[in-house]
Nucleic acid binder design. Structure first.
Lengths: 144, 144
DNA sequence: ATTGTCGTAACAATTAGTGTTGCGACTATC
DNA sequence: GATAGTCGCAACACTAATTGTTACGACAAT
């Protein structure tokens, strides 16, 4: 399955920025976030770039530059982040077209497509129920 | 996200075997199934091997060998297939441990874990609602 | 002018999945 | 028994996606 941590890292970055801003800072740098997530600043910049395209964060350049939230954490859901950051569907079809001369080969993709769409819709619904505010609250509630 | 078609191919194989058996044949060969799915017989054997370990299919060896269903299609759900065939979780954590000295780095994994577990549970529930009988019916209902 | 940070390209490293070949093991049939 | 068809499985190449890294230009506060 997917060894894909994009949603996790994106949520981490947003929670970090949010908390940092609440502590009175204007912007957070990719280097700070990368240190917390234990990865490379460029990885963070790439991810935050996608979040910016979706209107979740803003960035400044120049000296004293960095990243800030474009909206309140409470108004961002994991679905917003997911859509900004995850390209493909949860389940994939055959990578080559099955034999269209075979009844099963011909009908399997539409059949599975229907099922998968329903499941993705459910997942989206679940993701939409969780705000980044919720995430940050849970993060802070973790016992040390 | 995941370019992972294991569940799709496994469902394809099961539907194919089921239909073939209804047409009066005892067993289906990996070569026949591979032709329908437009892939390599070894890929099919690998997948069906996992389904056998979970008790969904049986295999015979020797001349006239092949695969047959171990249970009725109506008693198999996509969840059974999913669990037989998909190893990991839907969403992954950081691949390296985040900075445990940082509040966010320390709390993010438990927080996301909770959320992800809830979502996986929902997905399992959805998968459990669909039997392979349903899949085959939808396959056959696809207009030509 | 200097400095710190983003923006982005390029490429290596890693990982998971898929495709392919080869060959031994097994068994129905002759 | 010998033959032939098919699985079982190992080994390895190929592909694609993600992640990690380096490099360097663009930009803006000082």
């Amino acid at each position: 399955m997917s060894a894909n941590s994009r949603l996790t890292i994106a949520a981490h970055a947003l929670a970090w920025i949010g908390l940092y801003q609440r502590q009175g800072h204007e912007v957070a740098t990719s280097e700070q976030i990368a240190a917390s997530a234990n990865t490379n600043p460029v990885v963070i910049r790439r991810l935050l770039g996608e979040l910016r395209r979706s209107g979740l964060v803003e960035s400044r350049r120049g000296v004293g530059a960095g990243w800030s939230l474009a909206r309140e954490l409470g108004s961002m859901t994991l679905l917003d982040v997911y859509e900004a950051v995850e390209p493909g569907p949860l389940f994939a079809m055959h990578r080559t077209t099955p034999d269209q001369g075979c009844v099963v080969g011909h009908g399997i993709q539409p059949a599975m497509q229907d099922i998968y769409e329903g499941i993705e819709e459910t997942v989206r619904h679940e993701l939409a129920r969780v705000t980044l505010e919720d995430v940050l609250r849970n993060v802070l509630a973790t016992p040390r």
